[in-house]
Design a protein around this nucleic acid. Sequence first.
DNA 1: TAAAACGTTGGAAACGTTACCGTCCAGGAG
DNA 2: CTCCTGGACGGTAACGTTTCCAACGTTTTA
Lengths: 353, 353
Amino acid sequence: MSETFPTKPEVSRPTMIDVARRAGVGLGTVSRVVNGGHGVRDETAQRVRAAIDELGFQRNEVARALRPGKKSTSLALVLGDLTNPFYATIAKSSLEIAGQSGFAVVLGSVDEDPEGEKRAIQELVSRQVAGLMIVPDQGDHAFLEGAGVPVVFVDRPATGIDADIVMVDNEGGGRLATEHLLAQGHERIAILLAPSYYTIGRRLRGFRRAHRAAGIDVDESLVIQLPEGNAEAAEKATREVMLRPDPPTAIFASTNFLTEGVLRALGELGSQLKSEPAVVGFDDFRLADMLPTPVTVVASDIAELGRSAARLLLDRASGADTRPPQRIVLPCGLIERGSGERPPDSAAKRKAR
Amino acid sequence: MSETFPTKPEVSRPTMIDVARRAGVGLGTVSRVVNGGHGVRDETAQRVRAAIDELGFQRNEVARALRPGKKSTSLALVLGDLTNPFYATIAKSSLEIAGQSGFAVVLGSVDEDPEGEKRAIQELVSRQVAGLMIVPDQGDHAFLEGAGVPVVFVDRPATGIDADIVMVDNEGGGRLATEHLLAQGHERIAILLAPSYYTIGRRLRGFRRAHRAAGIDVDESLVIQLPEGNAEAAEKATREVMLRPDPPTAIFASTNFLTEGVLRALGELGSQLKSEPAVVGFDDFRLADMLPTPVTVVASDIAELGRSAARLLLDRASGADTRPPQRIVLPCGLIERGSGERPPDSAAKRKAR
DNA sequence: TAAAACGTTGGAAACGTTACCGTCCAGGAG
DNA sequence: CTCCTGGACGGTAACGTTTCCAACGTTTTA
């Protein structure tokens, strides 16, 4: 690059000052044009726009966010394992909404421990994000109270702070799944529970309510609390429970990863079992319909979860929404995939995601 | 400020100036302490640190990034559908590495079209990210040349710019998959190709090379270019090709989504087929081992792809790495899952050869 | 003992933008 | 004709940090 033309020294990009000089106007005028251009004569605005194009000027978002009160045009998203399709879907859909408003999404690195989450959140806050979307861990989130940034919790509420929350009707979903099994005549239904997440507790509650409504007692030995929330733990537990003298005739897996583990165990046990139990999972997953025994699941519109969260957060950040903290609950539906015989009087709704 | 105590009006967080006042030192000293604290007497540093703790001071990353030459402590990641486990894995693993160095990852909203990608990238650049990780679309990326930001391309190279690239050995993988099928005696192998991505071309090349090495001609009617890269397109194509008078005895699906479509089609065709073809997919996927016929795949360490990219980019951004653009190629391996039995009459042919 | 060297510290400039405040000019009212 | 009003525009302060330079005190060197 040995030209005599105003080829920039390659590292420094043109600023508003350059544009102002080029257009022969003041700095303030350029700013006005860049931000919608009110109070600027048409002809002047045109000259400025021409200069912007010629110089390839692009507003420096960092400098912009430095101004007092101003926040950056970024939202933060804090969640767990992106490899989990559930989280990935949230990320994708919230990203989509944010992008439509010109917002970027910053992903904080999230370790497993609550302490790591806190650190990640503070890192994000120090970046002056306009808002936080958090799929919260167990820990206390009171430290967010004074951060001066709107927060929306996704999928589950957090303790220590009263903020917006967008979630799924976990209890209704748990109930739906259980009712489906009960309607098929199952009376010994095992439920596999991932470690004490809020959501899991609600699903269990739905499980119990469905039993009560049907007048059937829950066998507490079939309420299985797993040490971990992964497929392996579910696989192990399934094998154990199915080899008991009095195994369940149906299994409700409270999580997509758990469902996978259950199916894996059943596949391995195979003919060792007198009869294969019915399985219902929570959250749909890819290939669920292609497994040897297609699995019925309770599903919700997870993408909408992310979209709602992003929309709500954007409204909060812009100050357009000053209502008290909202609680948005999305419904769950049953996706029947014909494991087991058809329930006697089922008019169960289908809700694809 | 009608108070005498430094209780902030809750929205504005304490700045270095507040810390300096509190500790009774100058602004520069606080800055030095915050950044490692070289050239500051121990006792002074301690006083500053105490003030930081008391005030709950946290460095404002935005102001920091404004300084000339300085970039923010964020990396940008531009990729397609996060719902695709392949991309999700890259996001997760790069996030992990970035986080270890205190870097956040900004996700640009990526529409499908190349123009959207360009817009997203420029948005990201305007946020002064320290570097860009891009899984590039077809379009020309020459516009990145003068951006003054290090760029690492992931999974496939881009045209118009000479930058670092981290990818997998697509040709080797294609060859591996094909050799596996050829070794089983298959001579009529169909290959399903997603739309003209670079990676797909290389996989096809491996496919051809394996054939040539084995002395077997490729039946060009079995090289199937799909109009789209999704499962549906693969499903349709599979159905068509399998219902031909002379169907292939094996199918190589060049993408994880395509593999899904192939399996779905085969499952539906079921007994209509004289014999079920062997299937090999590119890229492993969850539940691949649990399908009715477990599917053999060519796989690579995708997480390492993301990690390498992030590491390389961080080194570039810090100036620690000034080598010419690197080209990192990760190997592929075969995960055999016992699909791909020999074709009906292959034994005889093999002996005859 | 004076000068030089060094380590420590304070202060100010700069980064690129926005918001505010003045100035200027044109045009309408008195 | 003068005064006032209001729109258009220019200039400047401010945001919170880093970096540079000067100033200071102490120690080493000549």
